[in-house]
Design a protein around this nucleic acid. Structure first.
Lengths: 176, 176
DNA sequence: TACCGTTGTTCGGGTTAGCGAACGCGGACG
DNA sequence: CGTCCGCGTTCGCTAACCCGAACAACGGTA
């Protein structure tokens, strides 16, 4: 589990095992056994590897991934405030992924953005703010309207297509 | 550093050292030395403690916190796509916090939501989708319009106040 | 083909993490 | 006061993490 994460991050950084071991200050034998899944590394070792890889260490202890989920505007678990005219809808909670990039995306009317899959285990969260958007995995896109929420795994080809002018949305990308 | 985090979480859960060691399946001597800051624990040990404490493990390796930052609609680092009429704006990236709750919030015109500070180190991210919103720390609120992005530490009293009808926004709450 | 540089994987060994048991301490109870 | 129970800390000891070095495997080059 950790083994795969370390190897994935190392290859994503384009480093050899020897080079990463040198930069992190650990013996390459240690790193080799670690990537082979033998034993549990100490926190110090894993920390050194995380620093050398430029990833915040919790990224090296990943976990499984969900699939596609849509919450329509008005659906979802609403949390109302008694004290004020305020309502919140919980869309996603409790992931312990590490990197989380937050975007605001704008797509011209009729424009289509194709994206090949990102790193395995990445998850995308999308909330449409205005316009209409068709998004999701390339083989199963979903039509969304303002307030709609969509989440899906980003490790397969996917797309964004605006169905109305001035379409924009909030996009959270989680990289495991 | 880790020592303090473990002790803090253990006391926050109201557990004794002996009880936590029993639940996590580690020797209490190990836990005692760990909280004393002696040596580096292995990942497996820390993981077991995280499970027993009900925290996602990366919470045991904390880090500092930012303050308030506003990115106006149209500002920010834009990432354009050459292939399609598509533009994305990166708002926040690379946090290594653990729990991340995603909300869509709706606030009635003129309504004010007050919130006392949450757990130390929590961070809130806010993107206004429609309407006008005054939000932020109670002593330094900021007026936001659709597309504006605001982030601030949530461990101090803060507020949300709608300045127009049909105001809603996307809210990401990070709990360290 | 032979040589060389690099990559990643296996070997002994020193050191340390983790365990179980024993210890000192403080409060509750008879 | 004496005993008991639970708290957290220290004491040997075994196991394993980590290291350095030697080892195969591969590709480029003369």
């Amino acid at each position: 589990m950790i083994a795969a994460a370390v190897r994935r991050e190392r290859e994503r950084a384009g480093l050899t095992l020897t080079e990463l071991a040198r930069r992190a200050g650990v013996a390459k034998s240690t790193l080799s056994q670690l990537e082979a899944g033998t034993g549990n590394p100490s926190v110090e070792t894993l920390w050194a590897l995380g620093v050398a890889l430029g990833v915040p260490f919790s990224q090296l202890v990943t976990s499984p991934a969900p699939r596609v989920q849509v919450i329509r505007a008005g659906d979802g678990q609403r949390v109302r405030s008694e004290a004020a005219d305020f309502a919140g809808t919980l869309l996603a909670a409790g992931s312990h992924h590490a990197r989380r990039d937050l975007y605001v995306i704008e797509i011209g009317d009729g424009a289509v953005r194709q994206a090949q899959g990102h790193t395995p285990g990445s998850v995308e969260h999308l909330v449409v703010a205005a316009g209409r958007l068709r998004a999701g995995p390339a083989d199963a896109p979903v039509d969304l309207e303002p307030g709609d929420y969509l989440t899906f795994t980003g490790d397969v080809p996917h797309r964004y297509e605006a169905l109305a002018p001035d379409t924009w949305a909030v996009l959270i990308m989680e990289h495991p």
